[in-house]
């Protein structure tokens, strides 16, 4: 019962902040709402018993990436006249189409997990280690080793690319 209440309250907060992110006129306000949104998502992870993922969510997204967003938004000064927001009819259609696609996907996942329930939970129980962090680490370095390495390569390439772009021609 308490879990259901927590879920609905958090879900309402997440959706509300997400709407505010999109509708806020001032981009800095958008970023602040995005931070609050990420904090609510972290709280949702906690109710699911995934404390490690929740802490990483706050550390990486709320505390790291969005700070850089804020930097960029503050420095490039994206003040646009109000007409610029109204003129995007085609963009609005595209956004609606994408949102619809995501909704269909989420619904498909929900239906699918009803048909074949509780696969991930049993996988977690069969691991040789207990504890949130240990389980994530174990899965990351066994079953998901290849995606993990690919992601780290991608980050390395991005880092080198950023340095190349930032270096002055000599």
């Amino acid at each position: 019962m308490a879990e259901a209440i927590a879920f609905y309250v958090l879900a309402a907060c997440i959706l509300g902040f997400a709407v505010l992110v999109v509708t806020a006129k001032n981009p800095v306000h958008s970023v602040v709402f995005l931070v609050l949104d990420f904090l609510c998502v972290a709280a949702l992870y906690v109710t699911l018993g995934a404390e490690f993922v929740a802490a990483i969510q706050v550390l990486v997204y709320a505390g790291g990436i969005v700070v850089l967003y804020l930097f960029v938004v503050m420095l490039v000064n994206v003040k646009r006249p109000p007409e610029a927001f109204r003129a995007g009819g085609r963009h609005a259609m595209l956004g609606l189409a994408l949102a619809g696609a995501v909704l269909v996907e989420a619904a498909a996942i929900a239906v699918w997990s009803r048909l074949s329930p509780a696969a991930p939970a049993s996988a977690a129980q069969s691991l040789p280690v207990s504890g949130n962090t240990e389980q994530v680490g174990w899965l990351l370095y066994t079953s998901y080793l290849v995606p993990f390495e690919v992601a780290s390569m991608l980050l390395l390439v991005a880092m080198v690319g950023a340095i190349v772009l930032a270096r002055k021609e000599s």
Binding site: V28, V32, V35, L39, E51, F52, A54, A55, I56, V58, L59, A62, G63, G64, V67, L70, F71, M74, G131, N132, T133
Partner: peptide, 22 residues
């Protein structure tokens, strides 16, 4: 005493920077 205590400390303090920027 939570099982990710140290991560909790790091992540919460990393949110504190918003006060200064904003």
């Amino acid at each position: 005493d939570i099982n990710v205590g140290l991560l909790y400390v790091v992540s919460v303090t990393s949110v504190g920077v918003y006060g200064i920027i904003l």
